[in-house]
């Protein structure tokens, strides 16, 4: 997807003047990096999209983590074979997260949406200047909070799928295939209703367990498709915003709802930067 990683000698100069990819915004760290008036020398160790070095762009009280991005990489989006697109998407997603994580380990961050690109570094600075108040307010709101993913699964229910596997009780008269069919359908429906009720109960239990430990919650869409490889059918895919010191309590509470032998599974992911809870930060009017 990209040329071999450049070695340190031919790393591109920090600002190529072209488009830059934004990963996250944080409060400016004046004390730590004496980067001078522009604050742009605060380069992190993180490696960005297509192996470009990540650098900090600061304006006033806020800092953006960016890297130069080759327009050609972006132009190719949607024009390559499937596998190349998916590989590129995975590369960008993992790189994006790695940069966000590297900042999140040290400070509160506002993760940017994936593939947010500004035409120039100067336009990033302009965005920071205009949005400074909103960014700082959002950073203050999310200070000390992390996101935890909590997913519930139900193992594939053993409900009959073939109407032919008839109901065990009350054998119908052989001369009444129509009735046998209806009985089978009814049993199937009952089994499915039981399974659905069981799933709903688990989802409710997990959410009830999480609530006392959390500040906020978002439900992501249920995971299906070829990338979903959980232990059964995904029945809840929630993100919880929690205080760092409540992490373990939340983890213990939700996993206590699991009963794998009964087909009830709970998976916890994270802690994540608060991706699911960042509110859009529009540029201020003035």
């Amino acid at each position: 997807m990209t040329a071999a990683a450049p070695d340190h000698h031919d790393r591109p100069s920090p600002d190529t003047g072209g488009p830059v990819y934004l990963y996250a915004v944080t409060a400016a760290r004046h004390h730590e990096d004496a980067a001078g008036a522009t604050g742009d020398a605060g380069v992190t160790d993180a490696v960005g999209v297509a192996d470009a070095p990540v650098r900090a762009v600061t304006a006033g009280e806020v800092t953006a983590l960016v890297s130069s991005v080759d327009p050609r990489h972006l132009e190719m989006v949607g024009q390559r074979p499937q596998e190349a697109e998916l590989a590129w998407l995975e590369h960008v997603a993992r790189t994006h997260n790695a940069v966000v994580e590297s900042a999140f380990r040290e400070t509160t961050v506002l993760p940017m949406r994936i593939a947010t690109v500004h035409p120039t570094e100067e336009s990033v600075r302009e965005f920071l200047r205009k949005s400074s108040d909103a960014i700082l307010a959002e950073l203050a709101r999310l200070d000390g909070l992390v996101e935890v993913g909590v997913k519930a699964y139900r193992s594939t229910p053993p409900a009959p799928t073939e109407p032919a596997t008839a109901p065990p009780a009350a054998p119908t008269r052989p001369e009444s295939p129509g009735r046998a069919y209806l009985e089978a359908r009814r049993a199937q429906r009952r089994a499915r209703a039981d399974a659905d009720r069981d799933a709903a109960t688990l989802v409710r239990a997990v959410r009830d367990a999480a609530v006392p430990h959390a500040v906020d919650q978002r439900a992501h869409r249920l995971q299906t498709g070829e990338l979903a490889d959980g232990p059964g059918e995904n029945i809840a895919n929630d993100a919880w915003l929690v205080r760092r010191d409540a992490l373990l309590a939340l983890h213990a509470a939700v996993t206590a709802c699991a009963d794998p032998a009964a087909g009830r599974h709970v998976e916890v992911t994270g802690p994540w930067a608060p991706y699911s809870f960042v509110r859009p930060v529009a540029a201020d009017a003035g």
Partner: peptide
């Protein structure tokens, strides 16, 4: 991290939109 969990966060919602830029 599982790619699917990452994509839930990166694609669905979450991050800051700049709003007023067209590149």
């Amino acid at each position: 991290v599982a790619l699917i969990d990452l994509l839930d966060r990166l694609l669905a919602n979450g991050a800051v939109l700049t709003g007023d830029l067209v590149l």
